[in-house]
Design a protein around this nucleic acid. Structure first.
Lengths: 342, 342
DNA sequence: AAACAGATTCAAAGCGCTTTGAATGGCGCG
DNA sequence: CGCGCCATTCAAAGCGCTTTGAATCTGTTT
């Protein structure tokens, strides 16, 4: 069933039928109802390709997922982010197009997306400190929202980010308040902007309390269970291991716990652990009482907000770039306690 | 830059330019080279909407992700699956369209996808025992591949699945060979087809060895860390707890380990654990030596195969439905050992 | 009753591509 | 030299929708 057929059935012109369905005001209300009814009855849906062509808009948002050829890891946060974003896309009539790309030819992908008119806008995932995608997309004049920020880029652009610095600063302050001084960090890869900010936040807290960060306590790596485990194990092997660690992800924190178990240590009693918790649907941090004390911010919510921001920016391209900074909650769980007496 | 402009620059008709770029034979090789060169130089890319309309094909594969309103969980396996599938789509010139949908109106989504011509085919995720989507898609005549199978459906259709029954049977046999008789199962939700098959496989192994499965040892629930933990904890509280458990997911197995730790028990020595390992990129089961003994099958590879199957089915619609059954590897790790002496 | 404004409806022209069917040009051959 | 054939190229007709500008139909107004 296409528009022509439907309009013939109704004895109306395609113009009127199209307008009736798209809510234009110049069609009589009686006619509109008749048209809507017939469309429903005959299960008419406008062809998406034709609509795209006629409108010159794709009604599609692109997500480009870089799959680093080095570590081959899909960001585990990603699934929940798009669940949040997808919710908003559906509500606003947008499609979501996913592109998996190895980091070789990522730039070409964006150029393609633009020149083929595949998407009306893009979400940028996992920004680096000085991410080349941002100037590229600006140059291409393709609307975009960054999930995160790029510290080294000054020109304004749209972003949605959690306040990583303040989250890790608060985590540090909380541990300091429990008497900890030997505080470690098991961080993500620090060329990623979020990891950089997290480190800065924790270090700021330590320095404000007159504690000099010990380089042996600062680890950066991919946020897997195994890396969390290995990093903790390495620190525990030091002459004076940390009495507390801040961990950048829930998955890595599970590895940290395993290392502590293996060493016969108990979380909270022997070593305090605070993790960042993205509130992933498949990795809940406990039921009533959180397993880990955590700084929590829902990545799904970030997805929703990013989608809304992008859509409003697409539909109102002249507006100045907006951004949203989310504060993480500090949630007390069973993994922190006062510094052990020597 | 569009086709018309490009053809004017070249002093050729749109026909010839289009044919040159699409590899039709009736264009002189010299001309083709000239056209390709100019296209490159002017960064010409055919508009995707126009192409869709003219060809009557969308060159898009749909993935519909049901987001159960009850548990609000995104399947953690999903990210790796689409990473695998996306790889193949890119290679074959297909786009991937994602739709997040709450289970209310899932049927409407498929009808829409069909009648709007949004996609050329669909991947069905997370099939149930008697999944209504399969007859629906058959009726709609929309090509599809199921990731998994639906036990209660007899009509032929395309699927890619891991041999869940044999994987869990082998896990059971292995535990039996270590002398275990009190063997538990921490399974996924058993209206899901894969969970059903896994249970059947394990039970078959037990019964073949003359062991009657103890209902108290059989648990089914959502595969989260917390559920894994709680299920194990409950079993440990029994008068005669199991000496071994088979767990349906790596994440749940992490919870099982936590429950054992809390109870002061050691994996392998006190309780043996085998998990199913989807080989997720962000949840590797150890480096050299696996943390858990596991039946492993890469979900990313399943994604690749599903994509290939679907594409070949789209491009050759008359062919009979195909399917692929993958065997899981049994990988020995540090979580299993002989049954403890009482 | 004629004239006019406002409310509806319509025909037709795109949107940028593919594809059909026809036209052109170069070449070998009788 | 003229013909036919093959290799190229082209003009034009869609694909199914939106949207412009014109046409028609009401109901008022003078």
């Amino acid at each position: 069933m296409n528009l022509k057929q439907l309009s013939e059935i109704l004895g109306l012109s395609q113009t009127t039928v199209s307008r009736a369905l798209n809510g234009y005001p110049e069609v009589a209300e009686r006619t509109r109802l008749r048209v809507q009814h017939a469309a429903q009855k005959h299960n008419y849906q406008p062809n998406i390709g034709a609509q795209r062509l006629a409108r010159g808009r794709s009604m599609t948002i692109g997500h480009v997922i870089p799959l680093s050829t080095q570590h081959e890891m899909v960001n585990p946060v990603f699934a929940d982010f798009i669940a949040g974003a997808g919710e908003r896309y559906s509500a606003c009539g947008y499609d979501m197009k996913l592109t998996i790309v190895d980091d070789q030819n990522e730039e070409d992908i964006y150029r393609d997306l633009k020149s083929r008119g595949s998407v009306d806008g893009i979400i940028v995932h996992g920004p680096l400190m000085n991410d080349p995608r941002i100037p590229l997309l600006q140059e291409l004049d393709l609307p975009f929202v960054v999930h995160g920020r790029a510290s080294d880029i000054d020109t304004p652009y749209c972003w949605v980010d959690v306040n990583n610095a303040s989250a890790f600063q608060r985590a540090g302050e909380f541990l300091l308040s429990l008497g900890h001084r030997r505080i470690g960090l098991i961080n993500g890869l620090e060329h990623m902007d979020f990891a950089h900010r997290r480190r800065a936040g924790l270090v700021a807290a330590l320095e404000a309390a007159g504690v000099t960060p010990n380089p042996d306590y600062l680890h950066a790596g991919e946020m897997t269970e195994i890396n969390g485990h290995d990093a903790m194990k390495t620190m525990l092997a030091l002459d004076t291991p940390p009495t507390a660690v801040v961990v950048a992800s829930f998955i890595a924190a599970l590895g940290v716990r395993r290392a502590l178990d293996e060493a016969g240590l108990r979380m909270a009693r022997d070593v305090s652990v605070i993790t960042f918790d993205d509130d992933l649907s498949y990795l809940r941090n406990g039921d009533r009482i959180p397993i880990f004390t955590a700084t929590r911010s829902s990545v799904r919510q970030a997805g929703r907000l990013s989608a809304d921001l992008l859509i409003s920016h697409i539909e109102n391209p002249t507006a100045a770039p907006e951004h949203k900074l989310l504060e993480a909650d500090l949630i007390i769980g069973n993994s922190t306690g006062p510094v052990p007496q020597e």
